[in-house]
Amino acid sequence: MLLQQLADGVATGAIYGALALAIVLVYRASRTLNFAQGELALLGAYVSWQLVAWGVPIWAAVIVSMAALAVLSVAAEKVLVRPLVKRHQALPLIIVTLGLMIAINALIGWAWTYQTKEVPPLFGSGTIDLLGVAVSRQDVGIVLTVLAVAIGLGILFEYTPLGLRMRAAISNPESAELSGISTGRTMSIGWAIAGGVGALAGTLIAPELFLHPGMMAPVLIYAFAAATLGGLDSPPGALVGGIVVGVVENLAGTYLPHGSDFKQVVALVIIVGVLLLRPQGIFGRREVVRV
């Protein structure tokens, strides 16, 4: 029973980790939080669903959806976010991404109604026996997919010229620009990857939660908790944070009285606790306050 809970926790945690990864990529690129990240992922899930409904195979649908959301994220960054990041204003940034979150949610409701939709699981149904625990194929597939994405991004950042440029632009934007790196472009690439990873996360989780316009809001908060826990500027931290949050959430839901209600408070407790005790998270760098 406990092992079963742990396995479920790791699978949902991997999804939180994937969305947290999107949040971290955006934070690294623009030093801001995108409150619309969850709804962008939801839009990705709906695009996948729509393509499947039109007869496209699910895997192709996911890839198209990731590409579409990457493009949309870049557009949102250029039009809505960059002008405000340049002015260093936190409040308008929060207002604008919040506005985007509501607007996208409404758009989804208008385009696809508020009825629940069924997304086929990407990895088929049924279970696999892992060390005596029956784990659903979907859970295993989710964990492996997220792991593959994480490793792919790790290789991109650490071992490719593009990754080097992106890290340079984050480490010292001015010197990067003076070395011939367009920091605007690396910023856009960060948002594009975030949009794609988000769309993947949305499509992966849709079969578990049933696709409806309210699906992503709680996931977003868990993802924020995961990103905060891991450290807002650390991609590996986002994944580890995601899994920790997923497991804690699952255990709290099962073993605490009023568990299903308390587990929604878990995210708040984690966010507040981490920000107060260790604001840089587990893996993040301590930020110097600029005056």
Binding site: T32, L33, F35, A90, L91, L93, I94, A217, P218, I221, F224, A225, T228, H258, D261, F262, K263, Q264, V265, A267, L268, I271, V272, L275, P279
Partner: peptide, 22 residues
């Protein structure tokens, strides 16, 4: 500061109905 407070209070808003039920 700014963004962090936004995040915490957003989490607070989302946890409110659940906290009431709990």
């Amino acid at each position: 500061h700014g963004l962090q407070l936004g995040l915490v209070t957003l989490a607070l808003a989302m946890a409110t109905p659940a906290a009431i039920r709990a």
